[in-house]
Design a protein around this nucleic acid. Structure first.
Lengths: 219, 219
DNA sequence: CGCTAAGTGGACCACGTTGATCCGCTTAGT
DNA sequence: ACTAAGCGGATCAACGTGGTCCACTTAGCG
């Protein structure tokens, strides 16, 4: 029903639109998706009304900001599937994700959110899921990854690391890598490792992520 | 300067005071120290004014609620120093803390806070610090704990686990133990472990904890 | 009892934040 | 030079928060 009027924007309007997106990138990077339209308008040096006119809902703005970045990340994961060993691939993905989350808090919110979100992001999750499963399977089969870890653990681990990154990296840049390494060493197969118990089901993971991250829909 | 009037409370006042403390326990357990006086008053079934009269500041209320619990926890850590092995002691402390944090979010806030807080809690930290150092030293010396981990890592690890507990345990009770186990396996000395880099300094840890947890002082 | 200091409740105030709209003015571009 | 498109930001409503105040109630002493 939303008649998408595709007439090209006036030159000045297009200019402002770009400024808004760039501003939103910075705002979301610092404050996460909790950043407000006010923040964005200020950062862009543009009126609040202008932001609302260009992006009627936050979803639309978030989508515009992160569409490309998400696609890039899928590329990273795909590339990791062709790493020399499965373990290398897993480390690649976790490190890259950690580094990205450390510098862009909004990206973390977008990547880890499971509930309602823009159409285009659902596609991202759909593409991601089989890739992560392959990644985990490969590393497990080759014997480097402990057998009782599943793909459902990855989002939780990422959430943890990005938590460290969020609070720790401003104090000591890169400190999140310390705790990522600790986790990686815990993920490696080892004779001394303790039992982990029943892994999380998809449904449970979704519920947890849902309570962990800020909701994009509200009103 | 605060003339502490020690006249005993009237019977009904004392009763309400107890009700308030019990209510605050529940409120803080669920919502962390971010719980408000309004919340507490409602939960206690008592007027807002009554809460304010009995506890002029949040600090006083928090202190009344957690003084005993903190002392108990110090006891746990002391006991852990006499565990069969240093590793067992470390596991005891981390598991116990994780379990407590999982059921009381306010306790987590209190334990992990480093900045301004009630006098009596500063004493807690002071007693705690040497104990944790001993605990880590012992486990490291006996060769079970990897050499590049320090006592400053423990609060960060606890913060991580309690993060999982906060969001995960309501969905799957006890799920935090899964990720604690993963971390523990990462903490064990192992030939395949990767380098951790420079450990956190006390000052850095304090700064991180400060940004991580809700401030108790504000206004 | 009866009296009064102590205690009580919750309406109320001040304030900050957030989402969202509206409309008088400006300007791009034909 | 004219008009549709665009602009800004004051403004509104809703909400949550910390905190005070004061008319009413009651414990418990003499």
């Amino acid at each position: 029903m939303t008649s998408t009027d595709d007439r090209p924007l006036r030159r000045d309007a297009q200019l402002n639109r770009d400024r808004i997106i760039r501003a939103a990138q910075e705002v979301f990077a610092q404050r996460g998706l909790a950043g407000t339209f006010h923040n964005v308008a200020d950062q862009a040096g543009v009126g609040l009304g202008t932001v609302y006119r260009r992006f009627a809902t936050k979803e639309l703005l978030v989508e515009a900001v992160y569409e490309q970045r998400l696609a890039d990340f899928v590329g990273t994961v795909e590339a990791a599937l062709h790493a020399p060993t499965g373990w290398d691939g897993l480390v690649d993905v976790l490190s890259t994700a950690a580094r990205l989350h450390a510098t862009d808090r909004g990206l973390r919110d977008v990547v880890l959110t499971r509930g309602h979100r823009p159409r285009s992001f659902a596609a991202f999750t759909d593409r991601m899921e089989p890739l992560l499963n392959q990644l985990v399977d490969r590393a497990r089969t080759e014997g480097s990854l402990r057998a009782d870890v599943t793909a459902e653990d990855l989002p939780i681990l990422l959430a943890l690391i990005s938590e460290v990154a969020m609070h720790g990296d401003p104090v000591r840049p890169g400190i999140h890598a310390r705790y990522l390494q600790l986790l990686l060493d815990g993920l490696r197969r080892s004779p001394t490792a303790g039992a982990l118990g029943e892994p999380l089901a998809r449904r449970e993971l979704d519920a947890i992520a849902d309570s962990w991250l800020p909701r994009l829909d509200h009103t």
